[in-house]
Simulated assay, not measured.
Amino acid sequence: MPRNTQILLASRPQGEATVDNFQLVVTETPPLQEGQVLVRHHYLSLDPYMRGRMNAGKSYAPPQPLGEVMIGATVGEVVESRHPDYAVGDQVVGMGGWQEYSVVDARQPGVLRKVDTRQVPLSYYLGAVGMPGVTAWYGLVKIIAPKAGDTLVVSAATGAVGSAFAALAKARGCRVVGIAGGSEKCRYALDELGFDACIDYKLHQGDTQSLARVLQQDCPQGIDGYFENVGGWIMDAVMLRMNAFSRMALCGMIAGYDGQPLPMSYPALILTQRMRLEGFIVSEHMDVWPQALQELTGLVASGKLRPRETIAQGLAAAPEAFLGMLKGRNLGKQLVKLI
């Protein structure tokens, strides 16, 4: 059995996470038992939710245990199998974590899923045709529930979730406005992702009213639906332009992942505009995944969804890449290539 390089959570962050919170170790891979498979990971997904799991506080899921392999989705190849449903060479997606190999008990339902790479590249199953894509689909379809002609806004617009959201919303005949950080990201949103407009929040330096004025220009009919990934002053600015009976899908609050309070400046707007605001965790809605993945696969195959990827090389690069992603340094989906 191969030796396995892993990254563990060594300590919990006090405020902003640092590379010192992680530890790289090399271990022996145990022999397979009946029903297990050995997966060699090709790519590791880095996602904002991981930062929240590093904290010890109460959340929707238990904290990441100290001294254990960091949680994370992976795609890879079966290199040894003692389960009849999996053969050597099968390509699979699962929650293999921050490590080069994982031993998986394939008898447990849902821990591994075979994937077809004839139309969709393997890495896309961690992004556009994976959890981020389904997250965008659920927030759009089940919470915002737009009709043709609606104006929709999404923050973190050029990430894996935002890019899928744009393609899904444009397919429904909506006007889609993104909020992203930097001129390069906004050009990408307009030129490749099909956004109707994209606002560079960095030009407004935390000025809620300034951002709200630009939103008014780009959303002259107001905002009917908002997909929130960030929170804080950006959410405040969007709320100032939301229409009566508008809907907000609350997916992430990355501005508060370091434990800082995230006060809401205009909560009365929820009442006066009769907004529907709903938070969701996509893993609690596995029943919709097949429908969502079918649509997302079609968008990728047709070229209507062309996601970019930012790829770090080697497991040792994962902590720095993760911290950079939290600061918005990636363009598109942040991955680590492990092979």
Rank of each mutant, 00 (worst) to 15 (best):
residue 47 D to T: 05
residue 30 P to V: 10
residue 49 Y to H: 07
residue 22 F to Q: 00
residue 48 P to W: 03
residue 5 T to D: 14
residue 5 T to K: 15
residue 22 F to V: 01
residue 35 G to A: 03
residue 27 T to E: 10
residue 7 I to S: 05
residue 32 L to Y: 00
residue 41 H to F: 07
residue 25 V to L: 12
residue 29 T to K: 01
residue 40 R to S: 13
residue 8 L to C: 06
residue 8 L to H: 10
residue 26 V to C: 11
residue 31 P to M: 08
residue 24 L to G: 12
residue 32 L to R: 00
residue 41 H to Q: 04
residue 35 G to V: 03
residue 42 H to Q: 12
residue 28 E to V: 14
residue 36 Q to I: 02
residue 18 T to L: 10
residue 36 Q to E: 12
residue 13 P to F: 06
residue 33 Q to L: 13
residue 47 D to H: 03
residue 19 V to K: 10
residue 14 Q to M: 14
residue 16 E to F: 13
residue 43 Y to I: 03
residue 34 E to A: 11
residue 35 G to C: 04
residue 15 G to N: 08
residue 44 L to C: 05
residue 11 S to R: 09
residue 33 Q to E: 13
residue 28 E to C: 02
residue 28 E to P: 05
residue 14 Q to I: 08
residue 49 Y to P: 03
residue 23 Q to M: 13
residue 8 L to V: 04
residue 34 E to P: 05
residue 24 L to I: 15
residue 39 V to K: 09
residue 39 V to Q: 02
residue 28 E to W: 07
residue 46 L to K: 01
residue 7 I to V: 09
residue 17 A to Q: 02
residue 23 Q to W: 04
residue 17 A to H: 01
residue 20 D to W: 07
residue 11 S to W: 09
residue 50 M to H: 03
residue 6 Q to R: 15
residue 39 V to F: 08
residue 24 L to A: 14
residue 12 R to E: 06
residue 50 M to I: 01
residue 15 G to T: 05
residue 40 R to G: 12
residue 16 E to R: 14
residue 11 S to C: 10
residue 36 Q to M: 07
